[in-house]
């Protein structure tokens, strides 16, 4: 009988201690040791979330039930500005360039080089010079026709440096091919690299030359100093 009573007391004691443990555990939560407030990445459904960590007023919309399946096939791509349409020459090549892996573009280099020379032939004719006497001249970056068109054909991606100035080509600082800002004059830079020769001014409209190194327009009244998303609101009517 005494044994039985002791056993009951023990059970009660254990139960009491367990309750204490349980209460303690709840207390921990209330004290903020585990979850101070609901967030969108705590892995549980709380606040006014519609599902775990999504929906409601604070979190990203839930994507449960939204279909993202299927296979998507490339139709267009762009690295640097104006490459495909300036250098590809024909419509068939332009279409092909957009759906060819960057690593499979060896066949485009000779096409790009031929197009570059064809542009020079046009102005040889305009200037009354035999076309064989007017060729592309190694440009201000030291790139001859093969290396220049290789850069454009094989490696048509935008180089983006995470440390330091990002620019397509800043003539003031000399920094080149580290990004492309909204303000960079991509067309003048491209024209200078195509027609500017070693000095960058080979065909600049002076000394009887045609103006081929600048298209004569700048960014006008565009504002490139805006905070995110950095682009201006749409032009309205």
């Amino acid at each position: 009988m005494i044994k039985m009573t002791t056993f009951k007391i023990k059970i009660l004691f254990i139960a009491f201690c367990s309750t204490l443990l349980f209460v303690q555990c709840v207390d921990d939560d209330d004290n903020g040791n585990v979850i101070e407030q609901e967030t969108c990445d705590d892995g549980i459904l709380n606040g006014d979330e519609e599902d775990i960590d999504c929906g409601g007023t604070a979190c990203e919309p839930c994507i449960v039930g939204i279909e993202f399946g299927g296979t998507y096939l490339q139709e267009d791509m762009i690295g640097r500005p104006a490459i495909n349409t300036v250098f590809s020459g024909s419509n068939a090549v332009k279409n092909d360039f957009n759906i060819t892996l960057i690593t499979d573009r060896a066949s485009f280099q000779p096409i790009f080089e031929a197009t570059l020379e064809a542009y020079h032939d046009i102005y040889a004719v305009a200037l009354g010079i035999p076309i064989e006497d007017l060729d592309y001249e190694t440009n201000i970056l030291g790139l001859d026709a093969f290396n220049f068109t290789s850069l454009l054909a094989f490696f048509d991606t935008l180089q983006v440096a995470p440390n330091g100035q990002t620019t397509y080509f800043d003539l003031n600082t000399g920094v080149v091919l580290t990004g492309r800002t909204l303000a960079d004059d991509a067309i003048d830079i491209s024209l200078m690299l195509m027609f500017g020769g070693k000095s960058g001014t080979r065909f600049d409209g002076n000394n009887g030359t045609p103006q081929l190194t600048s298209d004569g327009v700048d960014s006008g009244d565009r504002d490139f100093t805006l905070p995110f998303p950095y682009l201006e609101t749409p032009i309205s009517e």
Partner: peptide
């Protein structure tokens, strides 16, 4: 970490390490 700048392969020296970046548009089949 960005790789060595591709310009180095074509003889342009002194360019900082740079990612190669492009965008693609792909249509659902």
């Amino acid at each position: 970490t960005p790789p060595a700048h591709v310009g180095g392969e074509l003889g342009i020296s002194g360019l900082p390490p740079a990612y190669n970046v492009w965008i693609s548009a792909k249509r659902k089949q």
